[in-house]
């Protein structure tokens, strides 16, 4: 066992960071919405799913194939932009249709949670039974099958012994770090970011101070959705396929990452995501892939026992420069 672990240490590290980066970007959406509305937006995984289909559509529309080298960075940027727009818009629409009416009527958080689960199932089935069969011209019962769009040429960027870094994994990691830093700066430095933090801290007082809550909520969903869309583009570059339930497992993992890092905390999402990715890969190398989730969740329970608010603990409102 230890042998396996040592043999696979460096490849596991690379894969863990790449996987963790995607977790982190999805976790942002959970964490931001939670920070502002105290709502766990279960439909966020479907917002991610919409992003992957956007990437698929863009790859198909431009007929990308055999993309490698620096061109891949450009293509991914385009996919992330398209995915961010589509997912961001979907997230705003979701909030408008599924959460806002409840909020306006003063419904409790539990009602919003049920609404979130309903929206999640609705979007999944909409894709599985209507959109995918229509789009790919397949019979309805084939709507559950994965759809592919191959376009990436995978090359090793550099290698130090076992530490081999491939182009797609490097792009994922760097893009995730870059986006996290940008978002962090946005929330701490801009007016809108200040509004988000104020609302997270005390919605009522912030209204009195002239913050337009509806605008803040819309912005929060838009940003969280856009991050999920960008994550979807990175995911699609890495795996080149998607299906209607692609967001389900990733969503659970990303939510776990958010809790691990400290839910409601932007930097916590990054720390939680990368930590979870690494634990999963190290755990698999040590015990075998079937133990991946057992190891990951054991660590989560241990962390929460000693730090109930997650690794970084603090929440969105306290994030300061």
């Amino acid at each position: 066992m230890l042998d396996n672990f040592l043999n696979q240490f460096w490849p596991s590290t690379v894969d863990g960071l790449a996987l963790g980066s995607i977790y982190a970007l999805i976790a942002l959406g959970y964490t931001m919405v939670y920070g502002v509305l105290r709502l766990i937006n279960f439909a966020h995984s479907e917002i991610f799913m919409i992003g992957t289909f956007t990437s698929l559509a863009v790859v198909g529309a431009f007929g990308f194939s055999e993309i490698g080298g620096i061109a891949l960075v450009g293509v991914v940027l385009l996919l992330a932009l398209a995915g961010g727009l589509a997912s961001g818009a979907s997230a705003v629409a979701l909030e408008y249709l599924a959460y806002r009416p409840l909020r306006k009527r003063g419904a409790g958080r539990l009602a919003a949670l049920i609404s979130a689960i309903g929206a999640s199932l609705f979007l999944q089935q909409l894709f599985a039974r209507v959109l995918i069969p229509w789009w790919f011209d397949v019979p309805q019962e084939k709507g559950a099958l994965p759809v592919q769009g191959h376009f990436v040429v995978r090359e090793d960027v550099f290698a130090i012994g076992d530490f081999v870094v491939r182009n797609d994994k490097l792009i994922i990691f760097l893009a995730a770090i870059l986006m996290m830093v940008a978002l962090d700066q946005f929330v701490t430095r801009t007016k809108l970011g200040r509004g988000i933090r104020a609302t997270a801290q005390d919605p009522e007082t912030s209204v009195l101070m002239g913050v337009n809550i509806d605008r803040i909520v819309t912005a929060t969903f838009a940003i969280g959705g856009a991050m999920a869309g960008a994550a979807a583009a990175l995911y699609f570059m890495r795996f080149e396929e998607t299906n209607y339930f692609v967001g389900f497992l990733l969503g659970i993992k990303a939510f776990t990452a958010a809790v691990l890092g400290g839910i409601g905390n932007l930097r916590g999402a990054l720390v939680g995501g990368l930590t979870l990715g690494l634990i999963e890969m190290y755990g698999s190398a040590f015990f075998g892939s079937e133990w991946k989730d057992v190891v990951a969740f054991s660590v989560l329970v241990l962390v929460l026992m000693f730090r109930p608010t997650g690794i970084l603990g603090e929440s969105l409102q306290q994030a300061r420069v």
């Binding site: 396996n4 996987l19 339930f245 079937e290």
Partner: peptide
């Protein structure tokens, strides 16, 4: 040597690393 994959997941890199080793 053996390993198992999760049919719901899409990242099989831990299995891939084992095979490669």
């Amino acid at each position: 040597q053996t390993d198992s994959i999760d049919i719901k997941a899409s990242d099989y890199s831990s299995t891939v690393n084992k095979v490669k080793a």
